[in-house]
Computed example of a mutant assay.
Amino acid sequence: MNSGPELTTPRLLLRRWRDTDRAPFAALNADPQVMHHFPATLSRAESDALIDRIEAHFDRHGFGLWAVQHTGTGAFLGFTGLWTPAFDAHFTPTVEIAWRLAHHAWGHGYATEAARRALEYGFTTAGLPEIVSFTAVPNDRSQAVMRRLGMTRDPRDDFDHPVLPAGHPLRRHVLYRITPDRAA
């Protein structure tokens, strides 16, 4: 894979993707618990294609969804980073902060720790004026991370995700926002 910006936190390395990440990422994407708030789990081919899109995003924008590795154990934990959504909504074009961690990595504060570092990069290095995050209404765990990051929600910004059909249980999404002056 490619070289590029690496970010560190006290426990984590946020780095570009390696071929050795493909198998654990596919396992993460095939886990029904991890993918509970997504329309479906991903096959190995779909997971690999996602890594390829992430790497292309880095090449195009200079930032993306970093692979997250625990610095103490070297374990691959998932991803956290910055992404440009490809759908049209009242708040696009925009950059979102997103994360997806393996189930074994939940409950340790890794998502918040990695996301704080990605926000810092987005505001200080990439010079972004605002970063958003969104998730399906029932995804309380991700909303809690958004609040811990200092992101705020105006219910008037909530939206129906345009790639999900009417009536889909995950279609309604909440939108959180943060600006550089609010980032911790």
Rank of each mutant, 00 (worst) to 15 (best):
Arg53Glu: 13
Ile51Ala: 15
Ala75Val: 08
Asn29His: 11
Ala45Gln: 14
Asp48Ala: 12
Ala126His: 10
Gln33Tyr: 06
Trp106Asn: 05
Ser47Phe: 01
Ile131Ala: 06
Leu14Ser: 04
Thr84Gly: 12
Leu119Pro: 02
Leu101Tyr: 01
Leu82Pro: 01
Arg60Val: 10
His37Ala: 04
His104Tyr: 11
Leu65Gly: 01
Phe76Asp: 00
Thr94Ser: 00
Ser133Gln: 14
Leu128Gly: 12
Ala67Leu: 01
Arg18Asp: 11
Thr73Met: 12
Ala45Ser: 15
Asp21Ala: 11
Thr125Arg: 15
Arg60Trp: 06
Thr20His: 08
Thr112Trp: 03
Phe87Ser: 03
Val95Met: 07
Ala86His: 14
Asp48Val: 11
Ala27Phe: 05
Tyr110Met: 04
Asp31Val: 05
Gly74Met: 03
Gly109Gln: 07
Ala114Asn: 00
Thr41Lys: 08
Thr135Met: 08
Arg60Tyr: 11
Val132Lys: 09
His103Pro: 05
Phe25Gly: 03
Val95Thr: 15
Asp48Lys: 10
Asp21Met: 09
Asp21Ile: 09
Leu119Trp: 00
Asp52Asn: 02
Gly81His: 08
Gly62Pro: 04
His104Thr: 13
Ala136Val: 07
His90Gly: 09
Gly72Phe: 06
Ala114Tyr: 11
Thr20Gln: 13
Leu77Glu: 00
Thr125Phe: 04
Ala136His: 02
Phe87Ile: 04
